[in-house]
Amino acid sequence: MPNSPSLTRRQFVTLVGAALSAFMGTLVGLPAIGYLLSPALERRERESWISLGPLDQYPLNQPTLFTFTRTKKHGWEKTVTSYGVYVLRTSPTQVRVFSNVCTHLSCRVRWDEEAREYICPCHDGHFAIDGAIISGPQPRPLDEYETKIEGGNLFILLREA
């Protein structure tokens, strides 16, 4: 009975029901997506100059580890993140600063004095004193920080996502 009145009434109710449900679904669904994605959408890039102390305290041609922490607010909690950088003073006035985070899978590399290489303990990645790749699975050399020297003090530019 395709044309009987009861069928068209049913079709009408189905249609209205679908429309109202779609409306309600959208009104809650879209905000809900934003709600779930919210922390991922927070993009607060911060740039700050971190003081590494007087340049003179770093020996020449000898990578020296400097560690510091940064506090960040995540939701309802403040999290302290540690950073480690290798300071390599190449001349009395010139300096390069490398991150100690391996470019492969973010393990921490350490300076091996005997081999005079940075070695990543996770997948045996080897980096030269200037951060260049010697061997291992890492895709690129060690990350390097922008530096500046002010009043004899060394600063690096830290970019946080």
């Binding site: 009434r9 049913r10 009408f12 109710v13 189905t14 209205v16 029901g17 109202l20």
Partner: peptide, 10 residues
Amino acid sequence: FFPDIIYKDL
């Protein structure tokens, strides 16, 4: 029930 009751519920 469908459609007479459902439409009110809706």
